[in-house]
Design a protein around this nucleic acid. Structure first.
Lengths: 192, 192
DNA sequence: CATTTGGTTCAAGAGTTTTTGAACTAAATG
DNA sequence: CATTTAGTTCAAAAACTCTTGAACCAAATG
């Protein structure tokens, strides 16, 4: 019989509270079109009170090493999780980014912004297509298409401009939220 | 040979410009985790210069009636497309909502807000789970979990508060965007 | 009132994404 | 240097999502 010098050490399965956290983030992840396992991992790490080893993520969540490896890599890439090196332990430990402001900024920078920039290019290719085919289309149709493309471009640019502002707003301490932006006239805020 | 009293009437396939619009919205749709066909339909309607019949959507895009039916229903539900009744024509015509402000508001109201509200409930259930299991967990662990849950709650509420503001900002004419929101003190804008 | 037209529904097929687990690499350990 | 441990990779299986098309319903038409 082989000796068991270091007992596998961690429980298997989650306690009730941990599974509620996991549920929350699984829900969020799927809403954002991410794999369930990514939600599980982040939820588990978010609920942990100290950095947690790869091993333990696998054992406690009961997912495969493959899923854990890929999920952790992904979460690390998007800056939602970071590696923590623990002295005297060869394993890699992981920690969730719990500062939501950070998470939010990362998401804006890593996902939203690149997409909007991609859109800009796509709008440009719509516009050049209109120019190319203007003859064939006739000037009325061409004008119509140009107007639609211009609207797309306008809104995409606006979104791009709004990005840094959004970032700031989100990191503003709650009592500062500028809720009286009411120079626009419409006053629907003052409830019954 | 059967007579052909009313020739099927519309071309099949899209012209170059139309397919660029479609490409744009297919890209957007998949980024948002929606079916490709939804992107196709919206893109096609967005490029159209007048309300378009179900028939024509099917024929021009070359998709099945099933996809068109479901896609149009979905788009109608989320307020991205509306039905237009045309006198003397029994078919239903559809028109894309081209006012991006509207589209954006609809999305906020129909998708983002409900999700955030769902989150509120999930946070509540995390919190009640902590209370239930407080004994078993020990006070230290319970305190830790409560802190994490509180952070979740806080950010979720902030997001919820920010929603109407966001809506307003997005509908603000471009030159008005309040880019000097700098009373917060932190000045990281002035480059190296 | 039989037929055509416009459209919906839904089961089955096609396609995609996620997860698994076994094979593997690399570093540490004895 | 043989073994154990930590983690990655990737092909195949499982799960899921989307699309199709045939059956169907309801309203209009002749």
């Amino acid at each position: 019989m082989p000796k068991s010098p270091s007992p596998p050490a961690f429980e298997t399965g989650l306690n009730g509270v941990e599974s509620e956290f996991v549920r929350f983030f699984v829900n969020l992840a799927t809403a954002l079109g991410m794999p369930r396992s990514v939600g599980e991992i982040f939820g588990f790490l978010f609920s942990a009170d100290s950095p947690t080893a790869f091993d333990e993520v696998v054992a406690r969540l009961g997912i495969s090493k493959g899923s854990a490896s890929q999920g952790l890599r992904f979460l690390t890439q998007i800056g939602a999780v970071s590696q923590v090196y623990m002295p005297r332990d060869r394993r890699t430990f992981y920690e969730a980014e719990t500062r939501m402001r950070q998470l939010f900024s990362n998401a804006l920078r890593e996902s939203v912004r690149p997409h909007l920039e991609g859109n800009s290019r796509l709008v440009a290719s719509i516009e050049s297509r209109i120019d190319e085919e203007a003859e064939t289309l006739g000037s009325e149709a061409a004008e119509h298409f140009r107007a639609r493309a211009a609207s797309l471009r306008g809104w995409n640019e606006k979104a791009l401009q709004l990005l840094p502002l959004l970032d700031k707003l989100f990191s503003l301490p709650a009592p500062f939220l500028p809720f009286q932006l009411n120079e626009t006239g419409s006053s629907e805020e003052t409830g019954p």
